[in-house]
Design a protein around this nucleic acid. Structure first.
Lengths: 233, 233
DNA sequence: AGTCATTCTCAGGATTCTCTCAGCAACTCC
DNA sequence: GGAGTTGCTGAGAGAATCCTGAGAATGACT
């Protein structure tokens, strides 16, 4: 992506190879340095060797719970924030209480965009990353990543979660044609296997909301995908 | 090719000899170093020996699925991006989750130009290739590969998918006469069996759109093919 | 449980593309 | 100059692709 300044180490811990694979590739892609571990024990040794700036940690590991890993780190943890991954059912409450500090959690399945966004937010909060203004602008469209507010020409626009992710991804890649596959992969959950036509529906939603305040911004490129495009004068 | 800087290794894996042949020829022509494999097992050993920068991998192999090859590579894969080839029907869902990791996929049949374009895009994205702006220029014609925008003398020109592929191919080989066969092979799907006269139709479309903004750029070479040519002063 | 917002599926209709065809124009070679 | 070949282009059928409204499924909140 356009962000070259990352250069952070992230440790990904999960025992499902598929997830590790997908997440690892996505993060490397974003410029993070990534190491992986499949068990709690591996994770512990990886931390001391790799000294990550942040951990992505599944709560269900074969040898111990993610929380145990966290507490066993003890002093060694030294303020390393953790993003816990949990299955959707149950346990949510358990996680809530534990996410003191700078921790966070996400329920599986999640979208890669969201994971990356949270990692960035956390690194920014903990002062490890440059506080690059979390504000994206394209023409008269503005998106504030902190408050999640979107405005066009000053007028606020209410978006649902999915609409927001989709618009954000497009705004991060202005004028560039994003393929259908890219959009589905980044904006929807990584295991989304449904009908690719959701995308069209959401583009339609977005257009309806955005175009109420000005000329059309989303261009469809037939047979390929969509792109943000400045309206022609 | 004016591009001498490629020098990348690409591993092509498919069990249909025709496809391997066609793709291999096209890639070698573009300056890539190519090795091939017909089975998953061969692919695995080829990776460790050949250490490709990128793989083109059929999902349907005689001994295992392409995905299995990918996951069996494991650590050895070391971030090598993969372009999966899939049959048009079904399977699209299975392929999801790829572009997040830098991978991509194409449905068969595809045009060679498209394949080459994607390979270039991916290598550029993963920083393995020089980030040569993705912008092709010929005289007052400009083509931006990321936004897929084409302009002549600054004026935007709307092209359909096929028109775009055709023009792009011509612009990649400026002044050189491209034979009818070359054009049909590269711009249309490799198994296109229809009437060769489509080409004339599309040349006509292109000329109509391009010449609206200046002197003629596409020259006919009777009995051979077409070439981009600077207008005589 | 009941309400509400959100997400996703589906189908009809509209649009746009691709390719074929046919007649005319331009060129080549005798 | 004439005959044959090759290329040009407008028209149109069929296919592919996209848009959008309606409603079912899902999950969040009270």
């Amino acid at each position: 992506m356009t962000d070259t300044s990352s250069d952070h180490r992230v440790l990904v811990v999960d025992d499902e190879p598929n997830i590790v694979e997908v997440v690892t590739m996505a993060l490397r892609f974003q410029g993070f340095e990534v190491e992986t571990a499949a068990t709690g024990r591996e994770a512990l040794s990886a931390v001391s060797r790799f000294k990550p700036h942040l951990m992505v940690l599944d709560v269900m590991l074969p040898d111990m719970e993610g929380f145990e890993v966290a507490s066993r780190l003890g002093a060694q943890r030294a303020g390393v924030p953790i993003i816990f991954l949990t299955a959707r059912d149950a346990t949510e409450d358990k996680v809530r209480g534990l996410t003191g500090g700078g921790d966070d959690y996400m329920t599986k399945p999640f979208s890669l965009e969201e994971l990356v966004a949270r990692i960035r937010t956390i690194l920014r909060r903990t002062g490890q990353a440059s506080p690059e203004s979390g504000r994206i602008v394209f023409e008269d469209l503005e998106l504030d990543e902190e408050s999640r507010e979107v405005t066009r020409g000053g007028a606020p626009i209410e978006l649902t979660a999915t609409e927001y992710r989709l618009l954000r991804y497009l705004m991060l890649n202005p004028r560039r044609v994003m393929t259908r596959a890219q959009l589905l992969d980044h904006v929807w959950n990584y295991d989304f296997g449904g009908d690719g036509r959701v995308l069209e529906t959401y583009i339609s939603y977005l257009r309806k909301k955005l175009d109420a305040h000005g000329p059309s911004l989303i261009k469809t490129v037939r047979g390929v995908g969509y792109a943000l495009q400045a309206p022609r004068a």
